[in-house]
């Protein structure tokens, strides 16, 4: 892995929405994301599925796109969101003052709020959700 990094080729991963038309709206991904912490529900989920204005019209799958120039990091007054090499951000929770600017700044609405700890929920690009998508709507992919 190190050799790739030195060559400037990053094995950075991010979640991709392969085809939202395949989505059935089962919410298995959303439930999986909170279940990473062995909790039940949506309260820790960094992925969101909602209907595109009535379920008959299909679904919108909201995930962090791992932007190369993340707007969320730009507005963070405390540098709690650190841009990741290859795209996306890493949250430094100890620096976060819970101002919520990042939530507003994300054009995709992909930053959610953890009411328990009062901090944003930032995707960590682990791909746990994709393991539970029965219809291959989402996948963890390498970006270069």
């Amino acid at each position: 892995m190190r050799i790739y990094i030195e060559l400037g080729i990053y094995l950075t991963k991010r979640l991709s929405v392969l085809d939202s038309d395949l989505c059935v709206g089962c919410a298995s991904c959303m439930l999986a994301c909170t279940r990473r912490f062995a909790e039940v529900g949506y309260g820790k989920s960094a992925i969101h599925v909602r209907s595109a204005g009535g379920m008959e019209k299909g679904f919108i799958v909201v995930v962090c796109r791992a932007c190369l120039e993340p707007p969320c990091a730009k507005v963070c007054p405390e540098d709690a969101l650190v841009p990741r090499k290859g795209g996306g951000v890493i949250l430094k929770p100890e620096k976060c003052i819970a101002c919520g600017y990042c939530v507003e700044a994300c054009p995709f609405g992909a930053i959610f709020w953890d009411e328990e700890v009062n901090k944003p929920i930032i995707c960590v690009y682990c791909g746990y959700c994709a393991n539970y998508c029965p219809y291959n709507v989402i996948a963890l992919e390498e970006v270069r």
Binding site: S28, T34, R35, F37, A38, E39, V40, G41, Y42, G43, K44, S45, E115, E116, Y132, P134
Partner: peptide, 26 residues
């Protein structure tokens, strides 16, 4: 509407049992 996170008693067992049932279901 609701988007809470609810706690379970045995975290390890919960994830394991979930996975077994999910596998069976799909």
């Amino acid at each position: 509407s609701g988007r809470k996170a609810l706690k379970v008693e045995d975290k390890v067992a919960y994830k394991k049992v979930y996975d077994e049932i999910f596998e069976k279901a799909v």
